[in-house]
């Protein structure tokens, strides 16, 4: 599973079987799970270290050549921005692949949370994309090919973290926009993403995902009282390359506290598994019904049955 992506393998097998049936090989997907490439990289986001300086936002803007922001990146008033009657804080969009939000947990100091793509091991966006625009690279990044994006926005529906955004304002080339772990410019070359590089507090620790899991647990153990005992993203939704440590319960800092450990694709496996069955069973079953129905008719009137047959199978005037 290292050199060839699972998707590619499946795609190839599908291409091979496409001649036989339209959808048969989809069953292949319904088996097995993928827990990430062994040497995939990741980032450990330690919310206890983040001071909300927004340097990561600035670095992302520069690295990804995004449009100028509405407010300077040293303007901390953005933390007071809310949307939809105060129900929503800022979220990543086509102009900002990462944002930092401030939370005020009950009776505690403010906690800052950086939001960006978490680069799932089994990304929902990837598994829901009908043009296979997404790729989970060996390095751990979830990247996408805008050149094939049709703009159905299913990945946005599927993403449990509300990450992919769409350039709704574009009329000629609207595409999905999201954090790509600085794959093209940095990760591919063994460099950490721009946000990690700029972080003055090392709130973002870049490393091999498997090492980060150890480090994360070690921090929880060695600093009793500093963290809640949960490494968010280690197992959640099949595991993510970006993981979080927080000083307070995760629902207090905007996380879904109970996303489950199953990757999103497991929810559709049942359906995908029934596809070949329907394809195989339905034709026989309904042709059978048809024959039965005709037999019944012919029971009382054999003469008529013969005529009906002709009438049905191509009889004209």
């Amino acid at each position: 599973m290292s050199g060839i992506s699972r998707r590619r393998f499946l795609a190839a097998s599908v291409a091979g079987c496409a001649a036989t049936t339209l959808a048969g090989p989809r069953k292949a997907l319904a088996s097995g799970t993928f827990s990430g490439y062994p040497d995939g990289m990741g980032v450990l986001v330690d919310l206890t270290r983040c001071v909300g300086c927004r340097s990561c936002e600035a670095a992302c803007n520069k690295e990804q050549k995004l449009p100028a922001p509405d407010r300077p990146f040293d303007d901390m008033s953005v933390f007071d921005e809310t949307f939809h009657d105060g129900k929503q804080k800022r979220r990543p969009d086509e102009n900002a692949y990462t944002v930092v939000n401030r939370y005020n947990p009950e009776g505690g100091a403010p906690v800052y949370r950086k939001v960006q793509c978490n680069h799932c091991n089994e990304p929902a966006c990837l598994s829901s994309c009908f043009v296979n625009a997404y790729t989970k690279t060996e390095e751990g990044a979830v990247v996408y090919n805008s050149k094939v994006c049709v703009g159905c926005r299913t990945c946005m529906v599927a993403c449990p973290f509300h990450v992919p955004a769409y350039s709704y304002s574009s009329s000629l080339d609207p595409v999905i926009k999201k954090c790509i772990f600085c794959y093209d410019t940095r990760l591919k070359n063994g460099l950490p993403p721009a946000c990690v590089d700029i972080c003055p507090q090392e709130a973002l620790t870049f490393g091999k995902r498997k090492d980060l899991i150890k480090i994360g647990h070690q921090r929880i153990e060695t600093h009793p009282g500093r963290y809640v005992a949960r490494l968010y993203g280690e197992k959640e939704l099949g595991g993510t390359s970006w993981m979080y440590l927080a000083p307070v319960a995760f629902d207090q800092v905007g996380f879904d506290p109970t996303p489950g450990n199953e990757p999103i694709i497991n929810n559709v496996k049942d359906f995908l598994g029934t596809v070949p069955m329907v394809l195989a069973i339905w034709p026989a079953m309904f042709t059978g019904f048809h024959l039965l129905a005709k037999k019944q008719k012919g029971h009382d009137d054999h003469e008529h049955d013969a005529e009906q047959q002709q009438g049905e199978d191509g009889g004209e005037q």
Binding site: R7, L10, A11, V14, A15, A23, P25, R26, L29, S127, S128, C129, F130, V131, N132, A133, N145, V148, C152, T154, I265, V268, F271, L272
Partner: peptide, 8 residues
């Protein structure tokens, strides 16, 4: 470009 594993 084929994404045969997708419901869509």
């Amino acid at each position: 470009s084929f994404g045969p594993a997708a419901v869509l």
